[in-house]
């Protein structure tokens, strides 16, 4: 009994401390005993965003070992199904939420807010011995990948006459991947529309292996996979009408590598954000993302953009 009373008294004091406007490191430990806090933040969603969230969770654990942050990887769509049932607090997403998912969230009364946390570039890759391709236009990529190309466009010289009369072998992510959705949307113009007769794998390392061992191959996947395998692959500049641009941190950041760069998001349940633990995690995410994103192979936003996201977060907190 006595212990219980003491505990309640202490909690009151701690709560009083944590609500003081001047929050600094010293009372971070105390604030997770906030009445509403459950000491847990559950995250699921995109496997593309996973490395970023894992890195943030890892660093967050070092500062706040009392808050259990768990991260799953059901994919962006699978994650939204759970998120919109209120089963998770945060959803990692490699694309914006879809209309159908918004309806799902609405129907179960889930409100949310999204933040952009990083950029990812899609790299178009050929074999290093490929000496004929010095750039590809968006139209040429479309010609190779659109559904009508199936069984029709099978040779390199069908793309440009001067290119060799050799088989064009295509490698790309499988249809369940957010990368596939994004590429088809950006290149073919319709999400999910693609030829089916290409070598597909959900594991990008398999695609790396495939392109690296086939002189007449062409593939696309996340830029990070190219960065780790530079010696085995050759990067193709993409021409969107103005100029041929190679993907790099700079060209992805300033938007000139278009249309094959995309933002990565986190979606937060606003009920969860009302909790001290989730709010603290989100703030930590936005503060540290800039540094952690490049460590795991993605491209950070500019400092101003992160500041804007932070401002959005703070304004949002006030509306709660």
């Amino acid at each position: 009994m006595k212990k219980g009373a003491l505990f309640i008294a202490i909690s009151f004091i701690l709560v009083a401390c944590s609500t003081s406007p001047n929050t600094d490191m010293a009372n971070e430990e105390t604030s997770n005993r906030e009445v509403e806090s459950i000491g847990q933040v559950s995250i699921d969603g995109s496997s593309t965003v996973f490395p970023v969230t894992e890195a943030v969770a890892e660093e967050f654990y070092a500062v706040n070992p009392d808050i259990k942050v768990t991260v799953g990887l059901s994919g962006t769509g699978g994650g939204f199904k759970k998120f919109c049932r209120g089963e998770t607090d945060v959803n990692d997403a490699s694309r914006p939420i879809k209309e159908t998912e918004i309806e799902l969230c609405d129907s179960s009364g889930i409100d949310y807010v999204d933040f952009t946390v990083a950029y990812d570039g899609l790299a178009v890759i050929v074999h290093p011995d490929n000496d004929w391709v010095d750039e590809l236009t968006v139209a040429e990529l479309k010609m190779m990948w659109e559904p009508d190309a199936q069984g029709e466009i099978t040779k390199w010289n069908q793309i440009r006459d001067e290119w060799p009369d050799e088989e064009l072998s295509l490698y790309g992510p499988g249809t369940a991947s957010g990368t596939f959705d994004y590429f088809t949307e950006a290149i073919v113009g319709e999400e999910g529309a693609s030829r089916g007769d290409y070598t597909a794998s959900e594991d990008d390392n398999v695609l790396v292996q495939g392109v690296a061992s086939d002189k007449y191959a062409l593939g696309f996947f996340g830029l990070a996979y190219y960065e780790e395998n530079k010696d085995k692959l050759s990067l193709v500049p993409v021409n969107n009408g103005d100029e041929a641009v190679l993907p790099s941190e700079e060209t992805v950041k300033n938007g000139t590598y278009s249309p094959l760069s995309r933002p990565l998001f986190i979606y937060l349940n606003d009920q969860a954000l009302a909790r001290e633990d989730a709010a603290e995690f989100t703030q930590f995410y936005l503060e540290t993302a800039g540094e952690l994103v490049s460590e795991v192979g993605y491209i950070p936003l500019t400092d101003e953009e992160y500041a804007a996201e932070m401002e959005k977060y703070e304004t949002f907190l006030e509306t709660l």
Partner: peptide, 20 residues
């Protein structure tokens, strides 16, 4: 297990059958 939402990043060891 992935289907039921078994997680990938878990920073704690399960202490009871109801833990993640």
């Amino acid at each position: 297990l992935i289907m039921i939402g078994a997680l990938t990043y878990v920073p704690f060891v399960a202490k009871s059958p109801l833990d993640e």
